[in-house]
């Protein structure tokens, strides 16, 4: 459903506030289905915000965005999908090491990756991925 909306209704993202509403629907969907995704996202937010220079904001298409200064480290949609920008080299390496790391759902030929957070282990891995991006961009 998420990928369908992104692919076919993505043009609606230019309407101000619609991304936030779409993300609110994702939140409601996760809670109705009894998933703990929102708790995992809260825990990731609490952890990553401790790092020097990190700020959070609403992603332009909805979701939680992590910033280092003016640069975006990545964002998490409320269905637990973490999107992050790394170098192509790191992306390749990560995808070879761990099958859970995928091409970005929209930009396959780029340094962007996508990773679904479904349980606590995924949550810890997401934090380590964000840490990797943090160290990478801090240089």
């Amino acid at each position: 459903m998420f990928l369908f909306v992104i692919k076919y209704l993505g043009f609606l993202k230019f309407i101000p506030g619609l991304g936030v509403v779409f993300d609110a629907w994702l939140k409601i969907w996760e809670v109705i289905n009894g998933r703990k995704t929102l708790d995992y996202i809260d825990n990731i937010e609490a952890e990553v915000e401790k790092w020097t220079g990190i700020t959070t904001s609403i992603h332009k298409y909805g979701g939680l965005q992590f910033n280092l200064g003016r640069r975006e480290l990545g964002h998490i949609h409320s269905n637990g999908l973490l999107d992050m920008l790394l170098s192509r080299k790191i992306k390749q390496q990560l995808m070879e090491e761990d099958g859970r790391v995928q091409h970005h759902h929209s930009f396959k030929n780029s340094g962007w990756i996508s990773f679904y957070i479904k349980d606590e282990a995924d949550m810890d891995f997401a934090i380590s991925l964000l840490r990797m991006a943090y160290e990478h961009h801090k240089k």
Binding site: V20, W25, I58
Partner: peptide, 12 residues
């Protein structure tokens, strides 16, 4: 859904 979107926008 719009109330929740407002809550999140307000939070940030």
């Amino acid at each position: 859904s719009f109330m929740l979107a407002g809550c999140y926008a307000g939070r940030y």
